[in-house]
Simulated scan of single mutants.
Amino acid sequence: MSKEKSSFSLKKEDPSLKLFVVLSKTYRAMMNEAAIDMRSKGLNLTEFAVLELLYHRGEQPLKKIGEKILLTSGSITYVIDKLEKKNYIYRKHSPHDGRVTFAYISDKGITLLDSIFPDHWRKIEEILEGLNKDEKTQAINLLKKLGTSIKS
């Protein structure tokens, strides 16, 4: 047997795979906790993401909502339908282009987010309490660096 290391064993020395696994597991654990929190408030994570986007950014074309929260057009229509039935949002066709439909957050949706956001913020702080403020800032910077270096 050769004393030279195989390319696979050299790759095992690189922590890339381990980092990928750890990031994946951490993301899943954080999202599970956030999902439990949202379900306790009568929403799923996707519904909350749509409401939060409209709350902070105002009216949005349905296509743009799908792009921003990574949903297909069929999925975004389903979520918008559910939120509309709950009277948290409403839609309106663009006066300039009838093919474009905008979603707007309703007063009921604003009231809902006003009431749940403070607790949700505390839950996020609780989820991330394993890091101090400086570590959170360092993690943000490292993850941004990683994200911008990925060629899509």
Rank of each mutant, 00 (worst) to 15 (best):
R39Y: 07
G109D: 00
F48Y: 15
D97N: 13
Y55F: 11
N132C: 02
K92T: 14
K12S: 15
K18E: 14
V21H: 09
S24T: 13
T148A: 08
G42F: 03
R122N: 07
I105F: 00
D134P: 02
S9Q: 15
S6P: 04
K133C: 03
S6Q: 02
P95Y: 12
K68I: 13
S16I: 11
E67S: 09
D81G: 12
P95M: 09
E13Q: 15
K64M: 13
V79N: 10
S6V: 02
I105A: 00
A49S: 13
V50D: 00
I124A: 06
L10N: 14
L113N: 00
L146M: 08
L62Q: 11
E126D: 11
K25S: 10
R99A: 09
S7D: 11
Y104M: 01
L53S: 08
L51W: 02
Q60F: 12
L70R: 13
A35V: 05
R91K: 13
A29V: 11
Y78L: 10
L17P: 01
T101K: 10
E126S: 10
L23A: 08
K86V: 07
Y104V: 01
R99V: 06
T26E: 09
S16K: 15
E47V: 02
K86H: 07
D107L: 07
M1P: 05
G147S: 04
E33W: 01
E84D: 13
Y55R: 05
M31K: 12
G66L: 07
H56V: 14
L131F: 13
E125I: 11
M38P: 00
Q138A: 10
E13I: 08
S40K: 15
L131Q: 05
F117V: 12
T101L: 07
K25N: 13
L113D: 00
G66T: 04
L19H: 11
K12Q: 15
L23R: 12
A34F: 06
Y90V: 04
K25Q: 14
L143E: 03
Q60W: 08
L51G: 03
T77Y: 07
N44M: 00
Y90W: 07
L23Y: 09
K5S: 15
Q60P: 04
M30W: 07
I150A: 03
S115Y: 00
T46A: 04
I65H: 10
T72E: 14
I124N: 06
K12W: 12
K123R: 10
H120W: 04
D114N: 14
L53H: 06
K12G: 11
L51E: 02
Y78W: 09
D114M: 00
K133Q: 14
I150V: 09
D107T: 04
V79T: 12
G58C: 06
L131S: 09
G147V: 00
K18T: 15
